[in-house]
Design a protein around this nucleic acid. Structure first.
Length: 837
RNA sequence: GCCCGAGUGGCGGAAUGGCAGACGCGUCGGUCUCAAAAACCGAUGUCUUCGUGGCGUGUGAGUUCGAAUCUCACCUCGGGCACCA
């Protein structure tokens, strides 16, 4: 007796069964090849939303598909559980971050189980648990040993609302990535990880990542920001204007314009500034600029109409290439943390310098001119500076010919030009500069002035200074009895704060900053390969067996942050001899956002949030899973539409009924009619298309193909039952169940057992195979085109030779080409093009 | 300012050099029903003098026998970086 499709009855039933059977546990010893499918783990903030449903469904369908294709699939889940929202929630609800976090994990876990995701739950990693974070501390110690973790005082980004510092990657347009408060600058002593040591490799290895979206690689390359140029040493003069032994080095990408330098700039924060101006008549004006710089936020600075401020320091430096003395100014548009914090100003070639020179009445000598410029004729043979002011209304950064440039006059100038290379060679020969590469990437600031994070395993001793904790004393346990609602911090926990020096044994105190949560997410994917190891972060053999991740899936918002940090961490682990791969994620898919039916971002404040719970309650999770993949390609934004989800439930019900009908006993074994052949052909074509489409993440067109097979089934079932090919019907029923099982696994297992009378789960079955010969059409229809327009259609046997096809085509359009000469005929797979005149 | 992506029916989207609009939603018509819903069947780019017709993938040019697809210029929208020397 056929059953009715009732998702609410079968879904929980199968979820229990799978758990009972430990269906998704990877067998310890297996001859099957391994694949690692991973979705970015969630932060446990309340329950899941539709974006999660999409993210985890993509991974789940792919993981199930791979398993049926003969792989052992590592498909784990965990929680990125440290972080600020837990603290904010704890303060708001007067509870503890841990309690709030674990409660949310339970809620999300229940939702994931309700989604029927094929996770190996025994491998769950929760970053706020001691058995995980101790190894984060261990990594920190290793990096400290290798000089990759260091402490330094530096101007840092401070979020006044989150009350902590932020890494550069966590500042978006001058605001905090989490709360979007305007970020302030502060000088603080903080811990850094030396990601800049890997800048070149992080850039170079992007080329290996063929399986990554181009735009993500582009964003990382931009962020790393490699610039080729030169360091040039200028000689500082004393107050009387006489050269001293002190050199100030600048970085420039335009060594070819060195002869056009008419002043010299220091960032207001530059370490030399105070000593240069102390007690001089220039001190007051300079301090005013420093004050302006201090109180100007990054947001204000980036306004295009932001006016530059500067002041003369009273000092001069000597330009090494022409011996000219140029005045030293401080200017608030010079960045302290890019290059050397000092800049040679070439106002004729740089728009910022040009504006500054105009404002303060400084020289603007031309050094690069184009050949059609009137100045070219005047200056083309001029080696000395005879013109020190131009009448341009803006700087010219375009390539041109070098003039007033000593022995280099007449050479080609511009970024990366031969002139620039020649000047750099000269500098190197004369020991006053060298070619160099500068990166925009800065070291990763990992200190956070927050409680709910991984403690930094460092101790401060009055006698020994900064001392690392001994490896065998790990973990430094985060105390749970901090009353953060009452404003307590780690300093208030005596048990935590007070300790003895690992070196001398005298009383000392612990570092009270914790690590950036991005340190926790930088290596969790390696821990999944060996999650219960209590002697090491992971076993090398295990991590090398599963890693790198074959398919990583997550949001584009991590294009720089998490993905860059993880690549860095992997390279560090490699250099520690722990792993033998260079990159953690071979293929990356960044899924698009789930928007509401009008294309608006879902948000609580807009009141347009679609809840996964409601969707599942209405249509069942199988329909929701299939629908969210059917709507749009996975990397594109999609607009959620309840009607569409209802349609997907209807489709599952329709195929459900078809499978029961197809599986009925009776029928014949001798249907070799044309429609049976066509039905069989459609079956093989569908297997081929679905197999290829899922492999390249075209989940939507794979589903469309299954729908076509279902439509073909409906056609065939119009035949009286006794005339249907029994074997073919059974084969189609079996195939429909297998092909749809990654999308609708509960639906599939119920049909597999109840309608088709099998045992176990479709998950354990083989993916269906197709026969190329049976998928092939025996007749081919072609459009006959004249001048690009369809004028007739012909059908020929698939094995017809070219001449036969041409003959048929010419006959079909005989009246149109009558009296004309056919110059050419082109036979393509689906058209015949006739060229006539 | 620099870099990247996208633009196709009423809607979501197919098609990456070969018959534009697969598949689905919606709409219209039909079967069943006292009726409705559900289910099933059919139609559905647009104009049309109904032709074996014209037009049609943001705009304009180009390459080609043939362009949504390739090239150039432009328009619009979205994203990333940004006083980076």
């Amino acid at each position: 007796m056929p059953q009715a499709y009732d998702p609410h009855a079968i879904e929980p039933k199968w979820q229990e069964q799978w758990e009972k059977d430990s269906l998704f546990k990877i067998p310890p010893a297996s001859t099957r090849p391994a694949k690692y499918v991973l979705e970015m783990f969630p932060y446990p903030s309340g329950d899941i939303h539709m974006g999660h449903v999409r993210n985890y469904t993509i991974g789940d369908v792919y993981a199930r598909y791979l398993h049926m294709n003969g792989y052992d699939v590592l498909h784990p889940i965990g929680w990125d559980a440290f972080g600020l929202p837990a603290e904010n929630a704890a303060i708001k609800h007067n509870t503890q971050p841990a309690k709030w976090t674990f409660k949310n994990i339970e809620t999300q876990k229940a939702s994931f189980k309700r989604m029927g995701l094929s996770y190996d739950w025994d491998r769950t990693v929760i970053t706020c648990k001691e058995d995980y974070y101790r190894w984060g501390q261990w990594f920190f110690l290793k990096m400290y040993e290798k000089g990759l973790a260091y402490r330094k005082s530096n101007p840092v980004n401070w979020c006044p609302s989150c009350k902590t510092v932020l890494a550069n990657e966590q500042v978006e347009q001058g605001t905090c990535w989490r709360c979007h408060s305007v970020v302030e600058r502060k000088e603080l002593d903080q811990w850094y990880l030396k990601i800049t040591d890997y800048a070149q490799e992080l850039l170079d290895d992007l080329d290996q990542l063929d399986g990554w979206p181009e735009r993500v690689k582009q964003m990382q390359a931009n962020w790393i920001g490699r610039s080729e140029g030169a360091h040039v040493d200028f000689t500082l003069c004393d107050e009387q204007g006489e050269p001293t032994d002190t050199k100030i080095t600048v970085f420039t990408t335009r060594a070819d314009t060195l002869f056009g330098c008419s002043f010299f700039l220091l960032a207001p924060e530059h370490e030399l500034v105070k000593s240069l101006i102390a007690g001089t008549p220039y001190e007051e004006a300079c301090n005013e600029v420093i004050r302006i710089a201090e109180k100007t936020t990054a947001v204000e600075r980036t306004m295009s109409d932001y006016e530059k401020h500067g002041a003369f320091t009273g000092r001069y430096v000597v330009n090494p290439v022409n011996g000219m003395k140029v005045p030293v100014w401080i200017a608030d548009y010079v960045l302290t943390d890019y290059g050397t914090g000092a800049v040679m100003a070439v106002p004729s070639g740089d728009q910022r310098d040009f504006e500054f020179a105009k404002k303060y009445g400084l020289d603007i000598p031309p050094v690069i001119v184009e050949e059609n410029d009137p100045l070219y004729e005047q200056l083309k043979d001029e080696k000395e500076r005879v013109v020190s002011m131009v009448d341009w209304d803006q700087a010219n950064a375009e390539p041109g010919i070098m003039v007033q440039s000593g022995e280099f006059t007449g050479m080609k100038g511009g970024k990366g030009s031969e002139g620039a290379a020649a000047v750099i060679s000269w500098l190197e020969e004369h020991g006053c500069g060298e070619g160099t590469v500068n990166f925009r990437l800065r070291d990763w600031l990992v200190s956070r002035q927050r409680y709910w994070g991984n403690p930094i395993p460092m101790v401060y001793c009055d006698d020994c200074g900064i001392v690392p904790v001994n490896e065998e004393d790990l973990p430094i346990t985060l105390p749970m009895d901090i009353d953060i609602a009452a404003g307590e911090t780690l300093k208030d926990s005596k048990e935590f704060y007070e300790c003895t020096c690992p070196k001398c044994g005298k009383p000392a105190h612990r570092e009270t900053d914790t690590m950036d949560t991005f340190t926790c997410s930088s290596w969790y994917y390696m821990r999944y390969t060996d999650p219960h190891n209590d002697a090491a972060p992971f076993d090398s053999a295990k991590v090398n067996h599963y890693m790198p991740v074959d398919q990583y899936i997550g949001g584009i918002e991590h294009a720089i942050l998490h993905l860059l940090y993880s690549r860095f961490w992997t390279k560090v682990a490699r250099d520690l001899g722990m792993v033998d791969f260079d990159e953690p994620f071979t293929n990356l898919l960044c899924q698009g956002m789930v928007k509401d039916e009008h294309g608006e971002t879902m948000s609580k404040s807009k009141g347009n949030v679609v809840s996964p719970e409601d969707v599942i309650a209405n249509y069942g999770v199988d329909a929701a899973r299939a629908y969210i993949l059917f709507m749009a390609p996975p990397d594109k934004d999609l607009q959620w539409d309840d009607k569409g989800c209802a349609a997907m439930e209807r489709f599952l019900k329709r195929v459900w009924n078809q499978v029961w009908t197809l599986a009925e006993e009776g029928g014949t074994s001798t249907d070799d009619s044309k429609d049976a052949k066509a039905f069989n052909r459609k079956l093989h074509q569908t297997i081929r298309k679905v197999t290829e489409d899922i492999a390249r993440f075209n989940f939507n067109t794979a589903l469309a193909a299954i729908m076509e097979l279902s439509n073909a089934t409906a056609d065939y079932l119009k035949k009286p039952a006794e005339q249907r090919d029994q074997k073919l019907c059974a084969q189609v029923a079996d195939t429909l169940v297998r092909l749809l099982s990654p999308y609708a696994p509960h639906w599939a297992d119920e049909l597999w057992t109840a309608a088709l009378g099998n045992e176990g789960s479709v998950y354990q079955q083989q993916w269906p195979t197709y026969d190329e010969a049976q998928a092939a059409e025996d007749e081919v229809e072609r459009a006959v085109m004249i001048g690009g327009k369809v004028r007739a259609k012909i059908t020929t046997p698939a094995d017809a030779d070219e001449q036969a096809i041409i003959d048929a085509a010419l006959e079909a359009v005989a009246d149109r080409i009558a009296g004309k000469t056919v110059r050419k005929t082109i036979v393509a797979p689906t058209v015949v093009n006739v060229v006539a005149n």
